[in-house]
């Protein structure tokens, strides 16, 4: 019972926060709200007996990625969105396109709901199967990660290296101005 309440609470928080994220004019506010959403999601992960993921979510996502976003926003001193002259001439602004886009979105939602309804195990209770202790400890995650998924792990490290180099190169000032 308390689980259900907690679930609804945090789920609601995550959804509301995300909905507000996409509604904000100022990117700063969006970022803050998104951090809130991530926190709620983290709580959901704990409910799902995944403490490692919950902690990783906070540390990596909320702690590193969002901070990076903040840095960039403050660096750029980004102006707020304005419905400037770009909008008047853009092809996507035409009424036909807007209606098509709306229809497409509706279609997507319908498909998603339909998919969800058809999932067989939708009614099964989460948390029934498996040994809680075995699957929720960091030790077990680590063991599986470094044995079965060893190659993916190493590949990911190279991916991060590449991303780092790419980010530095892309963001560097053009040498001509020095």
């Amino acid at each position: 019972m308390p689980e259900t309440i907690l679930f609804y609470l945090f789920a609601g928080m995550a959804i509301v926060a995300s909905a507000l994220v996409i509604g904000q004019r100022n990117p700063m506010y969006s970022i803050m709200l998104l951090i809130t959403s991530f926190g709620a999601l983290s709580a959901l992960y704990i409910l799902l007996d995944a403490p490692f993921v919950a902690m990783a979510q906070i540390i990596v996502y909320a702690g590193a990625i969002m901070v990076l976003f903040l840095f960039v926003v403050m660096l750029l001193n980004a102006p707020q969105e304005d419905a400037a002259e770009w909008d008047r001439t853009h092809p996507l602004r035409r009424p036909g396109t807007a209606r098509f886009g709306a229809m497409l979105a509706g279609l997507l939602i319908v498909q998603l709901i339909w998919a969800l309804v058809r999932v067989n195990e939708s009614s099964t209770a989460v948390g029934a199967a498996g040994d809680v202790a075995a699957i929720s400890s960091v030790r077990s995650v680590g063991r599986v990660l470094f044995t079965d998924y060893m190659f993916a792990f190493e590949a990911t490290s190279i991916l991060i290296l590449v991303a780092m180099v790419g980010a530095v190169l892309l963001a560097a000032r053009e040498t001509g101005q020095q």
Partner: peptide
């Protein structure tokens, strides 16, 4: 016990957003 479907709905809604 929360059914799996609930989590999936939350995920779908977040994805749509």
């Amino acid at each position: 016990m929360i059914p799996l479907g609930h989590y999936l709905v939350v995920s779908a809604v977040l994805f749509s957003i």
